[in-house]
Write a protein that binds this DNA or RNA. Structure first.
Lengths: 224, 224
DNA sequence: GCCGGTCTTGACGGGTTCCTGACGCGGGAG
DNA sequence: CTCCCGCGTCAGGAACCCGTCAAGACCGGC
């Protein structure tokens, strides 16, 4: 899902964090001291940094100072010291959150989710393009060859569900459930009707779908 | 500097927070229960919300749910309960930070600074122009072909909400919520009435809207 | 109390969207 | 070869949504 750089000098904690973060779907990069941390942050392009303040070579604030001029992603600071003076110092040095050891792993994960959630909209590409049409998720607008096309609410709900998973197959149950609700899991003819309408509005040749393909018996797939 | 909405039912804490935040250079708006909180959040346009979870009328999560669909600024949750399950729940419900009572005031301020630092600068161009009329968001004035037009408070609230998102579709729920408050989510006829009034005052041809377009079933869109 | 402006509320006609059933086609199974 | 399931297509009626108008409620200033 997203890349996390974990900086800590305690190998045991590092290992625990790596396992937990992997299980939560993150890609994990680790560093055991400040110098490596700065190096890894530059080369691995993490989305978020988890930084222990008690490092053998550099002070935690020094790492933050080295990071902040060019790294714009969120930084979550871990520390054994819990008094508020340290927290204020770290937060004002550029940290986005501060968690005292010992900490609860599920809370750490939730705080990471909150940080990533906020960072995501900027990085996330809310506009999907194909050679023939573009879908702007944020503005809720579709244009074919540059001219805006009007979609009904149902058409839009269906299209956005497909476009949010480019190249991936989306099961008909999932489509029906997220557009019409859990009670309509069996009404596959709805899909046929509305897919046809979408293709008529978007595809260059609606009879030979190029972007909104159907996988017989399984579902549909949007291929940019 | 920035506007803070503080939601807490303890008048003493509310007063302390107001004084401290004022001293730190913030503008402070307060609410003592969930309903007022949602209403104030809609009308006062705060940059950040400090939300106590233990409110007399609504559950804290309900306030978050009412807030999140349209409020994009950071939310810092205060709570008397400190176990990690509550923290995870609040963070996953859309909170950006979680502080347990009793808390250190300087830490709260530092966390607010961190949240505001990351928050979008919101350097919106305060004056929006179209070939036919201009909207000055800062001066609260609209001119059509150079001549000022009088708008009622409700008309203005609706127009500014639309103009703040040029080209983007604004859902009718969001419009109703931010103009009339969360209790009016279903009164879509208000929108019809006031959109008609706005079009009569602004559009060159009110019968064929060019700038304030309606997307049936979804909402309205301002296109410059 | 009166009056002007503003906000709410209800009703109606016209247009659009949604659901539903029917039909034809094609490919795989028997 | 035939049957049958799944898919695409089409069309019609019901339900919904929107724009419009007007009358009553509300609230301030005078």
């Amino acid at each position: 899902m997203s890349r996390v750089l974990v900086v800590d000098d305690d190998p045991q904690l590092l290992r625990a964090l790596r396992i937990t973060l992997r299980a939560a779907g993150h890609e994990v990069v680790t560093a055991a001291d400040g110098r490596t941390a700065l190096h890894e942050a530059a080369s691995a392009h993490p989305d978020v940094v988890v930084l222990d303040l008690g490092l053998p070579d550099l002070d935690g604030t020094e790492v933050l100072d080295g990071l902040r001029p060019w790294f714009s992603g969120p930084v979550l600071v871990l520390s054994a010291r819990g008094d508020s003076h340290d927290k204020v110092a770290a937060l004002d040095a550029g940290a986005d959150d501060y968690v005292s050891k010992p900490f609860d792993m599920s809370e750490l994960l939730a705080r990471l989710r909150a940080l990533l959630r906020r960072g995501a909209p900027e990085v996330d590409e809310p506009v999907v393009r194909t050679p023939h049409f573009t879908v702007d998720l944020a503005a809720r607008q579709v244009t074919v060859d540059g001219v805006p096309v009007r979609l009904t609410p149902t058409e839009w709900a269906l299209l956005s569900e497909l476009v949010r998973a480019p190249g991936r197959l989306v099961g008909q149950r999932q489509l029906l459930q997220s557009v019409w609700g859990p009670a309509y899991e069996k009404e596959t003819n709805y899909l046929r009707v509305y897919l046809a309408q979408l293709r008529r509005k978007l595809e260059p040749d609606p009879a030979a779908p190029r972007y909104l393909r159907t996988e017989p018996g399984m579902g549909y797939r949007f291929t940019p």
